[in-house]
Amino acid sequence: MKGSAVTTAAIVGGLILWEALVRLLHVPAYLLPAPSAIALSIWTFHHVLAIDAWYTTYEILLGFALGAGIGFALAVLVTFSRVLDRIVMPAAVLTQIVPKLAVAPLFVVWFGTGLAPKLAITALMAIFPVLLNCVAGLVTVDRRWRELFDSVCASRWQLFFKIQLPNSSPYVFAGLKVGMTLAVVGAIVGEWMGADHGLGNEMLIANSQLHTDLVFASLLVLSAIGLVLFGIIALIEDMTLPKYRRVSVVG
């Protein structure tokens, strides 16, 4: 309780300081709008932002589900085949290195301007951390577990289902958490490549009108969505994983 009180006080204090600085120093709104202006903007456009938020959330969730599913499936393939490991992992690293903003226009040409390019970029963002963490979880097998299974001629599948899969779950959750935060970025980049709805689209419109408070308002709504989605994964992790099995995040 005390910790959360301190956090709240820090946030409130920070907002007051921000408001005061903007007002006292007469910072122009196009550089940095005051928190009150952002709040007013959210209030004024709450119905527009709500629709945008719905579209963006939809893109994030669908793209994330796609990316996480592919990431997990690839991780399983990689742990079963050394050959695939040699192919998939360098390719995954390569897709991670390529700046998404640079390839996004190509996605528009390949996938059109509908939902597809947004899902493609969002999924591409989410795959890597999920893949990396799942592989880490699946290959981290205690030497003695392996010996125990070898000593009774256990099958590859038994090792996978009785050891590797359950052992990977903390890593999977760590990967899902990072993947979700990146999926949020992916959806916005996707919308910047052309969209009729969504918070990323709204940010572009607002920016073209030098409507900086609406840019910040969209960002704030986006952050809230990201936090909630992250929180949902953390909650599921809380309910299914005992505390002593948490691992730190890779990605």
């Binding site: 719905w54 579209y55 939809y58 969730l61 669908l62 994330f64 589900a65 996480a68 599913g69 997990f72 289902f161 899969l165 359950p166 779950s169 999977v172 959750f173 899902l176 709805h197 949902i232 994964i233 599921i236 992790e237 309910m239 299914t240 994983l241």
Partner: peptide
């Protein structure tokens, strides 16, 4: 039982996402 809970955990997010999105715009 543990594996079951694990699977529900790992895939729950995905299933929930798909379920949520089936009624999308």
């Amino acid at each position: 039982n543990r594996i079951g809970r694990y699977l529900s955990g790992a895939t729950g997010v995905l299933l929930a996402a798909i379920a949520l999105c089936s009624g999308g715009p």
